[in-house]
């Protein structure tokens, strides 16, 4: 009898363990969803009343920062310029780096791992440090706060994300596909640009959109480098407004209308990122069909 009860005790313990961990995981999942929902709710609740057509179609007029008419078109356009420009720059530099690491340096595991380590370190550097670095660089080169400076600094900031994102996809391609490509007589560049790039296209798209999300949302790195203006920039050498800074400036105002507009700007920024995320899903799905499943 005694033996038997010991066994069943163990059984019930296992059962409770299972039960407990299942609930922990269940709850953590829902807490995450809840937090996201709460953030969106807060922004929408405060921002939607202040959101109007005027907000997204007009630049700030005189007295905008005291609650008078105008909108944040300058910041919307500025952010898009900055995000697109820096993502493009980071892509143009990052894609070859990732392909190089995984094709030419395939046989040099140590070098590649060192590069990965350095990139991960750079990924962890806070963006204000990039901002400070960019500022020093600008002073050295005698540049003023401008769209170009911002694009360069943001590109540096998102470069590790871009490279590591693409690299993660390339890393998981089995050697069999490389062998298949080489056995057909392709050179390394043909293998990289015609085969591996296609195979990892879903990853490339994800990396690009992640980088873009980071680029458009970053505040600290653009604080010193792009400056702020009420005008829409017409050239790369002009200072540029960005949405995160527009939010920052309006939120620090004591006037309630202006504060509310900060939330409206946050709604716009969130909407842009949401659209980008949905687009990324659609594109990833579309390109996935060509990738070989392993």
């Amino acid at each position: 009898m005694k033996k038997n009860s010991g066994k069943s005790f163990k059984k019930t313990r296992l059962k409770y363990e299972e039960y407990f961990f299942r609930w922990v995981m269940f709850l953590s999942n829902y807490i995450i969803a809840l937090i996201l929902g709460f953030i969106i709710y807060t922004i929408l609740k405060t921002g939607i009343p202040a959101l109007s057509l005027e907000m997204i179609t007009e630049t700030p007029k005189g007295g905008f920062y005291f609650g008078k008419e105008g909108g944040v078109l300058n910041a919307i356009i500025g952010s898009l310029y900055l995000g697109l420009g820096s993502t493009f720059l980071a892509f143009v530099v990052g894609l070859p780096v990732a392909l190089f690491m995984n094709t030419w340096l395939m046989n040099k595991k140590r070098t590649v791992n060192l590069v990965r380590f350095i990139l991960d370190l750079l990924w962890g550097v806070p963006s204000i440090v990039y901002g400070a670095f960019g500022f020093t660089l600008m002073v050295l080169l005698g540049l003023k706060a401008s769209l170009l400076a911002g694009i360069i600094v943001i590109a540096l900031l998102i470069l590790p994300i871009m490279i590591r994102g693409i690299d993660e996809g390339l890393k998981n391609i089995p050697k069999g596909l490389y062998e298949a490509s080489y056995s057909l007589g392709s050179t390394k560049s043909e293998t990289a640009f015609k085969v591996m790039m296609k195979q990892t296209m879903p990853c490339i798209i994800t990396a690009v959109l992640l980088s873009f999300g980071r680029a458009i949302g970053d505040t600290a790195a653009v604080l010193f480098t792009t400056g702020f203006t009420d005008n829409i920039p017409t050239s790369l050498s002009q200072p540029t407004a960005t949405l995160p800074l527009a939010i920052f400036f309006q939120l620090s105002s004591p006037i309630p209308e202006v504060k509310q507009r900060a939330y409206a700007a946050a709604v716009i920024l969130t909407a842009i990122i949401l659209v980008i995320s949905i687009l990324s899903r659609v594109f990833t799905y579309r390109y996935k069909k060509h990738s070989i499943k392993f």
Binding site: S183, L184, S186, V195
Partner: peptide, 21 residues
């Protein structure tokens, strides 16, 4: 080496088609 490899076709243990049509 690409010229050398073009003299030979390779079939591997499991097929690795290229990621295209």
């Amino acid at each position: 080496v690409t010229e050398i490899r073009k003299q030979m076709g390779l079939l591997s243990q499991r097929p690795y088609p290229l990621p295209m049509s």
